[in-house]
Design a protein around this nucleic acid. Structure first.
Lengths: 215, 215
DNA sequence: TTGACAACATACTGGGTAGTATGTTCATCA
DNA sequence: TGATGAACATACTACCCAGTATGTTGTCAA
């Protein structure tokens, strides 16, 4: 077997662990999730996980980072769109909401990570790793922040306090991670309609003008 | 000492435990919170807590119920207001948001309780108690649901899907439990301005018309 | 003044789990 | 073809913590 393929297999194994861990973290929370539990979900044992991750916190950080990586990738195609910022915002917001639905276990883990960091539930040694992840996530938030400020300057949005507004906007855009559940026979189009409703709600909250071509 | 006073002292002791437990649950989450930790925060020991509550889950349920009790009490004065439903909604929503800020530790615990129930993180025996609390909370949500439906009928709100809209609305109204932090020198008026901004954002999300007398 | 009981504190036990130490297998490479 | 190391599995330990069992103190009622 070529070294390239071997390396790829290793990365696959890591990705499988991250995916299983994300699901476990979502379904049981951080401390209720045991390494044995994640291993069981994989049909493996602890050894496999501890071979790839130094600790439970390291595994958690891996899921967090993977989730944020996917978020950046999801909005990347729209960040540099020319034209009005409000239009750019709608594309980004829509991609973000769809992303929340598609990678819900990872996003729930990211959310938990932020909560844990805010209450300082990390050991000193992992503090720096965690702080970097939080910065990674804050930067992501600031991308949207800059866009809505620009859109306000261009007269398309209307709000007073930027910080609060950005918080409320993300609260709406992220909310599917809490209440979305796939319906039987649900198509891609159904999900997109759902996402559009969420985006429209956030759009209104930002003081965006009503558009005729949307329901 | 009169029996009345004794009983009152007991209730005081219970209330102190609930308050300390709410803070601990908020700061550390459910499983990271130890009974010893709550006792320590009270300057007491486990014995005191287990004298009033049968288990950790029972203590948690007590905090949950107390939080919801306070919520019902907060909106009670406005539920039967005559006039347009949209106006009634604004009063109720404002009272709700202020309540989220004032009793944040309890509300965070309620939130955690809902999450735990959704992922089934309860033992069978406590399942019925928990189910009743969830119903208590669902009923509270339905109060708002009925009001926004009425307001839509009266032409003041404009939205498509009631369930999603109610979810998104509560997401916005509840959000201060995640990002609110008291500022130095903050007055009651500052909090009310903050709450009004949140209510306005939710109002817009519901498709409410802009009002001139608000910023 | 003396039970009786409420309201705690103290001391102990058992189960679950993070982390570690040590095997085992198999592919690659010299 | 034997050495080497990656990629796991197995076995074990040490700790934390919920729950319990039992003591202690003060109050009230008779």
């Amino acid at each position: 077997m070529t070294p390239g393929v071997r390396e790829h297999m290793q990365e696959d194994s890591r990705a499988d662990i991250l995916s299983a861990a994300a699901t476990c973290f979502m379904e049981r929370g951080y401390s209720e999730t045991s390494i044995d539990g994640v291993a069981h979900a994989l049909g493996a044992t602890k050894g496999r996980i501890y071979h790839h991750f130094r600790s439970k916190a390291d595994l958690f950080a891996g899921v967090f980072r993977a989730g944020m990586d996917m978020n950046y990738a999801a909005i990347a195609p729209y960040r540099a769109l020319p034209g009005r910022a409000a239009v750019r915002w709608r594309r980004m917001a829509f991609a973000h909401v769809v992303q929340m639905i598609d990678t819900k276990p990872f996003q729930r883990t990211v959310w938990m990570g932020v909560e844990m960091h805010l209450r300082g539930a990390t050991t000193p040694e992992q503090r720096s790793v965690f702080a970097e992840l939080i910065r990674y996530r804050t930067d992501y938030g600031n991308i949207f922040r800059e866009v809505i400020v620009k859109a306000r300057e261009e007269g398309d949005f209307d709000f007073t306090d930027v910080s609060i507004t950005n918080q409320l906007m993300f609260m709406t855009l992220n909310s599917p991670i809490f209440w979305y559940a796939p319906r039987v026979g649900e198509t891609r189009a159904d999900i997109e309609i759902l996402a559009d409703r969420v985006v429209t709600c956030a759009w209104r909250g930002l003081g965006g003008k009503e558009e005729r071509n949307r329901q």
